[in-house]
Measured scan of single mutants.
Amino acid sequence: MLEGKVKWFNSEKGFGFIEVEGQDDVFVHFSAIQGEGFKTLEEGQAVSFEIVEGNRGPQAANVTKEA
């Protein structure tokens, strides 16, 4: 699992990017966010995740919000 911070997330469109120190930003789709209820992320929020190869390159999977 990697750790990063949410760079930005558009809850209307359901996607955004996660910043990872020393690496390129990683695309995140709302469907990759773990948990119940409305799936969104806040700018600057700490998250842990895995990287998988998507249709358009690397993207986040199994995203969990850090306490």
Rank of each mutant, 00 (worst) to 15 (best):
E66D: 15
A32S: 13
G22E: 07
G57N: 08
Q23H: 13
I51G: 02
I33A: 02
I18R: 00
E66L: 09
S31C: 04
A67K: 15
F15A: 03
F30Q: 08
E43T: 11
I33W: 03
S48Y: 13
E66H: 11
V63I: 06
Q45P: 01
F15H: 15
V63L: 07
E42M: 10
K65R: 14
A32G: 13
H29G: 03
S48P: 00
Q45N: 10
I18V: 05
L2W: 13
T64C: 05
Q34M: 07
S11K: 13
F17I: 06
A60T: 02
S31I: 11
A60M: 01
F15V: 08
R56Q: 13
Q23L: 14
G22I: 03
S11V: 08
F30M: 06
G44R: 08
V52F: 07
I51F: 04
E21P: 08
K65W: 14
Q59R: 09
G22N: 14
A60L: 01
A32R: 03
K13F: 07
I33F: 06
E66M: 13
E3V: 15
R56G: 12
F9N: 00
F30K: 09
K5F: 05
L2V: 10
F17D: 00
E12N: 12
G57L: 05
A61H: 14
T40Y: 07
G22F: 12
L2I: 11
G14E: 02
F17A: 04
A61I: 13
V20C: 05
E12M: 14
G57S: 08
G44H: 07
A61K: 15
E43M: 13
N10R: 09
G35W: 12
N55G: 15
G14P: 00
Q45A: 15
G4A: 03
A61L: 08
I51M: 10
E19I: 14
P58Y: 10
M1F: 08
K65I: 11
I33R: 01
F15E: 02
D24C: 05
S11W: 13
F17M: 15
F9H: 01
G22C: 05
N55Y: 09
R56H: 13
G57R: 08
G54K: 09
V47M: 02
Q59N: 07
E3P: 15
S48G: 11
E50C: 05
F38L: 13
V52H: 12
G14T: 02
S48K: 14
S11F: 09
W8E: 02
S31H: 15
D25S: 10
K5G: 04
I33K: 01
V28K: 00
A46D: 11
D25F: 05
K13V: 06
I51Y: 07
F15W: 12
V63R: 00
S11H: 12
E3C: 05
Q59Y: 13
G4E: 01
A32N: 11
E66F: 12
Q23W: 13
E12Q: 13
G54I: 06
T40R: 06
E21C: 06
V6D: 00
V52S: 08
G37R: 06
F38W: 13
V28W: 02
G54Y: 06
H29A: 03
K7Y: 03
A60I: 02
V26P: 01
G54S: 15
V52T: 15
F15K: 02
G57M: 05
V52M: 09
V26K: 03
E12A: 13
Q34F: 08
A61P: 01
G16T: 00
Q34E: 08
E3Q: 15
W8N: 04
Q45G: 11
S31Y: 11
E66S: 09
E36W: 09
S11Q: 11
G14K: 04
E36N: 08
V6M: 03
K13N: 06
Q59E: 11
G57I: 04
T64P: 02
I33T: 02
Q23A: 08
E21Y: 12
T64L: 11
V6N: 01
V28Y: 03
Q45M: 06
E12G: 13
S48A: 10
N62R: 08
E3G: 12
Q59W: 08
S48E: 06
V26H: 03
N62I: 07
F49I: 04
G22S: 08
E36D: 15
E50T: 15
G16R: 00
F30Y: 12
E50L: 14
K5T: 05
G14R: 04
A61R: 15
E21N: 12
E66I: 11
E12Y: 14
Q23T: 12
D25R: 08
D24L: 07
Q23N: 10
M1S: 11
E42T: 13
N10I: 13
E66A: 08
A60V: 03
E21L: 11
E42S: 06
S48M: 12
G54H: 05
D24Q: 14
F30L: 06
K65S: 10
E12K: 11
G14F: 02
F30E: 05
K39G: 08
A67H: 14
E53P: 15
N62M: 10
Q45T: 14
S31R: 12
Q34N: 14
R56D: 10
L41Y: 02
G44Y: 07
E3Y: 11
I51E: 03
N10Y: 05
E19M: 15
S48T: 08
E36A: 09
W8G: 02
K39D: 05
G57Q: 04
F30T: 04
E50V: 14
V28S: 02
E66Q: 10
L2Y: 10
G14L: 03
G4F: 02
K65D: 06
G44C: 05
E43Q: 14
I51P: 03
V52Q: 12
Q34Y: 06
F38P: 07
A60C: 04
L2E: 06
D24N: 14
Q23G: 09
L41P: 02
E3A: 13
H29C: 04
V63A: 03
G37Q: 09
A60K: 00
S48V: 12
E12V: 09
G35C: 04
G16W: 01
K7E: 02
W8C: 05
E3R: 15
F49N: 00
S48N: 15
L41C: 04
N62D: 04
I51R: 10
K13P: 02
T40I: 13
N10T: 08
M1L: 08
F15D: 01
T64G: 10
F38M: 15
Q34V: 11
S31Q: 13
V52L: 06
E43K: 09
K65H: 11
K7Q: 04
F9C: 02
E53Y: 09
F17T: 03
V47D: 00
K13L: 15
V20I: 10
K13H: 07
G37D: 12
F49V: 03
K13W: 11
E53Q: 15
E36Q: 10
V20E: 02
E66C: 05
F15T: 04
P58F: 10
V6F: 02
E36L: 14
E21V: 15
W8M: 06
V28R: 00
G35M: 14
G22H: 09
N55K: 08
G16H: 00
Q59H: 12
N10H: 15
V52N: 10
V47R: 00
G4D: 00
N62Y: 05
I51K: 08
V47Y: 02
R56V: 09
V26T: 07
K13C: 06
D25A: 10
G44Q: 10
V6P: 01
Q59A: 10
A67Y: 13
E19R: 09
F27Q: 02
T40H: 09
I33N: 01
A46Q: 14
V63E: 01
F30I: 11
E21K: 09
K5C: 04
N55M: 12
A67I: 15
V20S: 12
V47P: 00
I18C: 02
E43N: 15
S48W: 07
P58Q: 15
D24V: 15
W8P: 00
A32E: 09
W8Y: 09
K7T: 04
R56C: 05
I33G: 02
K13E: 05
K7D: 02
V63K: 00
A61S: 07
I33D: 01
V6S: 02
A46Y: 08
E21D: 14
I18L: 13
F9I: 03
V47W: 01
L41R: 01
A67P: 12
E50A: 12
E3L: 08
E21R: 15
A61V: 06
K65L: 11
G22Y: 05
I18T: 01
G4Q: 01
N10W: 09
E42P: 07
F27S: 02
H29R: 03
V6L: 04
A32P: 01
F17N: 02
G22M: 09
K13S: 06
G54E: 11
F38Y: 10
V26C: 05
G22R: 09
K7G: 06
D25Y: 07
T40P: 03
F17H: 04
F17P: 00
F38T: 06
S31V: 09
A61Q: 10
G44S: 07
V28P: 00
E50Y: 14
K13R: 15
A61E: 09
E53I: 08
G57K: 07
F9K: 02
A46S: 11
A32F: 06
G35K: 09
S11C: 05
M1N: 10
G4S: 03
A32Y: 05
H29Y: 05
A32W: 03
E36R: 10
F27V: 03
Q45I: 06
G16M: 01
E50Q: 15
H29L: 07
H29M: 12
E43S: 14
F49L: 10
F49C: 03
T40C: 05
F30C: 04
E53C: 05
G4V: 01
K5L: 05
